[in-house]
Write a protein that binds this DNA or RNA. Structure first.
Lengths: 337, 337
DNA sequence: ATGAAAGCGCTAACAA
DNA sequence: TTGTTAGCGCTTTCAT
């Protein structure tokens, strides 16, 4: 009861042992007698001893912390991913430190470097839509910082990655639209820089081809910020309004919800109901109006897998790693009648 | 270019100074000549020197990290709060470490104690709905751990708190329903243990009284887990279905969305459209169907204010604090016609 | 204005 | 099996 925080030294003094013995006993070293171990462990439990993580980290060059870099925390998809990450980190005794870039490449770089200098054990990140220069990331990796990318991944880096089967998802989405009778399908897409946008575009095209439909570049609108700004969505929709289309594929979460919101505000568009398929991880699709068919990514699972891979890599301590790309399926949630 | 990480010692050696001089120069101490400062600073910038936070923390007994304890990360409200927290923490150079309790009192306690032993500089937390014993929190506070509570706050602790003006919000909600012609208003509420539930209940009653309507306990349903489980909502709604009511007040985010989802699945209830007012921080209310009037909390602002208060308290280093309760307004977003 | 030295709490090489 | 010692990178008295 005498004090708040016991240190190794304190315990050693009280038990008349040396700090190193206590340290070893606590870490269950084989070179400590069972008797001593018991003594130390019992006492440590009694006073609720906790090693000071700062001291330990300083010594071991390890902080038991992993950093997350995403564009936005308050986002269905990312918050579900973070949920998954947290769930495994918690089990494996790692802290999770978050940061957001708001899609700015500069902020992204700042955070990554900050994490590096904060001696994080590893990083989990989804690229910001603005990012193009990944050279500094390559540098980080060379310096030995384990990074696992998810969802939006850079093209060439030597690292684990966990992604969605975007091509297939888009392909299936188109199949669905065609089955519903659509002949001229529009596409609302994010920045072409993003890996996932590119893959979805590809799947979209393949889907059309497989149905003997022509890909019409005019029916495609790109939103540089992935719909972060409603204005870019409004603009895109206004462009599309000039044309004829009977179905639309929304290639991102914000694009999907932004499109629906635009519909609500724009009578001209609301008049001709069309078939809508869109990526979204909102838990509330079933109460959306108009009803849409949702493509839902395995967000929680993505966080889990990414965190597992990262921690595995961290604990290998720079041993040669066989980098994996985990591809996760989507779920197609059909619009209710 | 010669090495990755420069330490103070490295710099000292290269510049032929002592580590202490370098340290002082970097911290802009007055007892260092301008010339030396310039020399050190320039070199530090050149090699992109970053103090090792572990070492610094060990020495200063400060980790520049704050912990967040919430029930659920993937939740509109909480993720918006976290967004606010992150935004000020970033500015003030604090790391943000997250944890979630899934409404379990046990996990909550675990996380708080874990954070304590990890030498976090302070904590931001919203109580889990299951929590009743707050004695251990009092202990934490006595031990000198700064804790700022937000949204769901314990009754009596000596600490800053940032909350929503729940009483007023519920009061206004009832006013709105009555203005729309409702005479018998039902209430779907969370656990009575939660501070915010209690306040909302109170405001609800006051609202009725002010309109000379009677408070009918039968029209109130409590969901112990705040709607975390859809089953409890379904059950509550089934109870209400036996009764006659022409308006409903939904006293929590999950309750609101859960109610709408239940409506979708239950034809019996969907048949009689009633006026709905509910708390929710979803950004998508405008595309909900049926349309509802939303009470939106100042989530981002709440995170900001809580983080500011916490960091202020941390940097006062145990000086006598004048504990504040910040009360934030809600926004009533009227259902569109 | 600068340096030497101690120490934060821990681990680990080396000694005994 | 246990103890001694040095050192992780930093700050901070106390000297100079």
């Amino acid at each position: 009861m005498s004090q708040d925080h016991y240190t190794l030294k304190d315990i050693a003094k009280i038990l008349k042992l040396s700090p190193s013995t206590v340290s070893r006993a606590l870490r269950d070293s084989h070179e400590i007698s069972d008797e001593t171990k018991r003594l130390v462990l019992d006492f440590a439990t009694k006073v609720n001893y906790r090693a000071n993580p700062l001291a330990r980290g300083l010594k071991e060059r390890k902080s038991y912390s992993i950093g997350i870099v995403v564009s936005e925390i308050a986002n269905n998809f990312f918050s579900q991913v973070i949920d998954g990450i947290e769930s495994v980190a918690y089990d494996k005794n790692y802290q999770v430190v978050i940061s957001q870039t708001n899609e700015s490449a500069e902020r992204e770089r700042f955070h990554v470097e900050h994490f590096y200098s904060r001696s994080m054990d590893g990083l989990l990140m989804a690229m910001s839509s603005e990012s193009s220069d990944t050279a500094y990331l390559e540098g980080m990796i060379k310096k030995g910082m384990p990074i696992v990318f998810f969802d939006r991944v850079p093209a060439t880096l030597q690292s684990h990655r966990v992604i969605t089967d975007n091509k297939r998802a888009a392909y299936e989405g188109v199949q669905f639209l065609v089955k519903k009778g659509c002949k001229r399908i529009a596409l609302l897409s994010s920045s072409k820089k993003l890996s996932n946008s590119k893959e979805r575009l590809e799947g979209f095209k393949l889907g059309l081809i497989s149905q003997h439909l022509e890909f019409d570049e005019k029916l495609v609108q790109y939103c540089e910020y992935g719909g972060l700004k409603q204005s870019e969505i409004d603009q895109a929709i206004n462009h599309l309004a000039e044309l004829d289309y009977d179905g639309i594929f929304l290639s991102g979460d914000k694009l999907t919800t932004g499109y629906l919101q635009a519909l609500r505000r724009n009578v001209r568009l609301a008049k001709k109901p069309i078939e809508i398929v869109g990526f979204t991880n909102s838990n509330l699709v079933d109460i959306f109006s108009p009803g849409i068919t949702a493509i839902r990514q395995s967000a929680f699972e993505m966080g889990k897998r990414a965190a597992e891979l990262l921690i595995e890599q961290i604990e290998q301590r720079g041993k040669e790693t066989n980098f994996k790309t985990v591809v996760l399926p989507v779920e197609l949630i059909e619009r209710e009648m």
